[in-house]
């Protein structure tokens, strides 16, 4: 099932081309939207919300035409904006119920859903308190609640962990992950923090200068390196490196770990045997895989 499908979409603002003949389609589920500043991510999000009239191209999102069905799109898509957007003097329930009414729900329905959704977001204790008294983490979760109150099929989150302390970040990411993996709602997660994207998303798309640079499943994009391992031992890493070299491996020191390349066809058991022989304690041994950061940077280079 496709989440959205854009074909040759172009949008310019005066001299600046925000989207440059962009063609991309992504499946439903948890999708990460990555790209350097100025890549056109914000414009892309606005296009997906049907807020922009594009110059050229066509596209659908959840089956709706982005050129014609703008209002219907916003009935099935929720948006969690990056910046503060809460007005004072409202309680949590009122705020979320208002968001529901703005989406077209009746007053009763909106109020009922508001309570349910606030429970889900973990704000049930605070729901009757004014929103000004909320901490940053609570405010973010409140925005998320306001975005899902009308039960959209897709929720777009723009830098949702911005400014959150570690606990707040964890709560937010857990919610995003739960929504996309267990509750059947798709999530489009736009963020600069790659570990956050990795925690929540299965697919990513990388944009640059208005174009699509790369897309795919995260675990497929992270290349496996054959016969290359990262190793850390408790003490005397240098000595261990020499032992490994004598056993036929190539080693390379990075930060506080060793990168070990075993001879072709040989697995990690060589490293274990060397450790057993020289009495070293291996604390970390994993095959080398590129990080999402490396995937991202590589995509940008191309």
């Amino acid at each position: 099932m496709t989440l959205f499908d854009l074909k040759n979409v172009t949008k310019t603002y005066g001299k600046v081309t925000a989207l440059n003949d962009l063609s991309v389609d992504m499946p439903i589920g948890a999708v990460g939207l990555l790209g350097p500043n100025g890549a056109g991510k914000t414009t892309m999000i606005r296009t997906l919300l049907g807020l922009i009239r594009i110059d050229k191209g066509t596209g659908t999102i959840l089956g709706f035409d982005i050129r014609k069905d703008a209002l219907k799109i916003r009935q099935t898509v929720g948006f969690v904006p990056e910046d503060e957007c809460l007005f004072p003097g409202t309680t949590g329930v009122e705020f979320v119920a208002y968001a529901g009414e703005l989406a077209g729900m009746g007053r009763q329905d909106a109020m009922q859903r508001s309570h349910e959704v606030l429970d889900y977001a973990g704000l049930s204790e605070q729901r009757y308190r004014p929103v000004d008294s909320y901490s940053t983490g609570m405010k973010q979760r409140l925005k998320l609640a306001a975005a899902i109150v009308h039960d959209p099929k897709l929720v777009i989150m723009d830098e949702p962990t911005n400014g959150l302390d570690p606990q707040g970040r964890e709560e937010m990411l857990e919610l995003a992950r739960d929504l996309s993996h267990n509750k059947g709602m798709s999530v489009l997660f736009s963020s600069h923090l790659l570990p956050d994207v990795e925690h929540v998303c299965d697919h990513i798309m990388v944009m640059g200068r208005g174009k699509l640079l790369a897309k795919g499943r995260i675990d497929e994009m992270k290349a496996r390196f054959e016969s290359v391992y990262q190793v850390r031992v408790k003490r005397e890493q240098e000595a261990f490196a020499h032992e490994l070299q004598r056993a036929g491996c190539r080693t390379n020191s990075e930060d506080d770990a060793l990168e070990v390349v075993t001879p072709d066809g040989v697995g990690p058991d060589l490293i274990w045997r060397t450790a057993a022989q020289s009495g070293k304690q291996i604390r970390y041994l994993r095959p080398r895989r590129s990080t999402l950061e490396e995937v991202f940077l590589k995509a940008l280079e191309d």
Binding site: W272, A275, Q281, I282, Y284, R286
Partner: peptide, 24 residues
């Protein structure tokens, strides 16, 4: 953890209990 880790190389060297990855 110290005692635990020190058991691993010997175990991993045995054919019936190979270890592909270890991390904390």
């Amino acid at each position: 953890p110290d005692r635990f880790y020190s058991r691993l190389p010997e175990l991993a060297s045995r054919a019936e209990t190979p270890i592909e990855e270890v991390y904390s």
